[in-house]
Simulated scan of single mutants.
Amino acid sequence: MTGVGTRLSRAQRLDWLRLIRAENVGPRTFRALINQFGGAAAALEALPALARRGGRLMPPRIPTLDEAQAELGALERLGGRLVLMGDTAYPPALRAVDDAPPVLSVRGSDAMLAAPKVAIVGARNASAAGRTLAARFARDLAAAGFVVVSGLARGIDTAAHEAALAGGTIGVFAGGLSRPYPAENVPLIQAVAEKGAVVSEMPLGWEARARDFPRRNRLVSGMALGTLVVEAAERSGSLITARLANEQGREVFAIPGSPLDPRAGGTNRLLKAGATLVTEPQDVIDALKPLLERPLPGGGDETFEAPRPPRAPEGGPDEGVRARILELLSPVPTALDDLVRLSGASAAEVQVVLLELELAGRLERQRGGLVALM
């Protein structure tokens, strides 16, 4: 990724925004494009040809420069700014996640983004006891120097944000920053933006859909050294956050509850699966303090915006190479190394074919460097 503190021009930042907002370009595809073409401007230029070679008849939708400027201008009028991966303000722990968003929209404090964090999540229909526990943990963790991250939802999220306001808290949106949700939390969201920070990877006016909440959850867990689940039913979205934290190599903590309370079913199951049992804030503090000196797992050492030529010929691999790679792909997730080994193609050729298929909407990149046909 970009060297920390790298400064890009406003034109480059707009190119980043256009590229991540382009059709069929997600965080992993963005990373692959930048690494392949050396910068966002060159990647934007290459998109139509790549998608056409991947089998798409119409070029993918790419925001115009005017549209990108309009989004950035609206964000700035809202009191926000873009934070790009590699900017000093980009959350350090999030940078280590393999599908970290290259562009964040942020309102609030750079210091909060840079500080060590703990995520606190749980039930929307939380009990009085659960809210009290969430507030107690959030208050003490903030006092110990940890910024509390959560998703601004009702229940446990709200209790954690409110209790951590004085010490430091970050709220993560599932939609765009101009679409605060839920409506009843608008005053709280404003307070978090003023005293801490609010963050989103989505376009400014994006209305959150059901599938956007798991995407939000990966940012909640990805920013934090550890995730604490206070109350969660067996099918709670908080369990998705806990699973993502585990996949990201982060600590997962859970507070045990009564087997008679369905709101404790998920937390008790987490404990059976190996989550760390905690009953007081000091348990979390003691577990996380040693991690402050340890490098985070994951992440890459690619350099964004490096002035280098594409790694493959402009026309892409020849048809024989492309056919061999396509033959090996299926809906079953496949590792990039296996595609290189079995196809006899170079890694650069395989990457180009994968980009072509992604931009045509025919392939999905998954965790762990796996790819699968859609």
Rank of each mutant, 00 (worst) to 15 (best):
R95T: 10
G274E: 08
L204I: 06
E201H: 08
G226Y: 12
A89Y: 08
Q282V: 07
V172K: 02
T334G: 12
P297Q: 04
G122H: 01
G86K: 00
I120P: 09
G151T: 08
V106C: 04
I325G: 13
P313M: 10
F37G: 01
L141A: 11
K195T: 07
G315F: 07
W16R: 13
L104C: 11
G176T: 03
V229H: 07
G320L: 12
E71W: 01
A51P: 12
A345K: 15
A183P: 05
A224F: 09
L165K: 04
L326C: 14
E293C: 00
P333Y: 11
L288F: 05
G86H: 00
A193E: 10
G300F: 03
N268C: 03
I62T: 12
L326V: 14
E231Q: 09
P59W: 02
I255C: 04
A210D: 07
A153H: 00
G122T: 11
G226A: 11
A242R: 10
I189Q: 11
N246T: 08
L228E: 13
A96K: 00
P259R: 02
L113H: 13
A208F: 06
E184G: 07
I170R: 04
L328H: 13
A210N: 05
G73E: 09
R131C: 11
A232V: 09
A312I: 10
K195P: 03
R136G: 05
P262V: 03
A164L: 01
G226S: 13
E194M: 03
V198G: 05
Q282Y: 03
F304C: 00
V118T: 12
L291V: 06
R341H: 15
G175S: 02
V149Q: 09
P310L: 07
A224M: 11
R21A: 12
R131G: 14
E207K: 03
P309A: 12
V350G: 15
R216V: 09
V147Q: 07
G175K: 02
P313G: 10
L204R: 05
R243E: 14
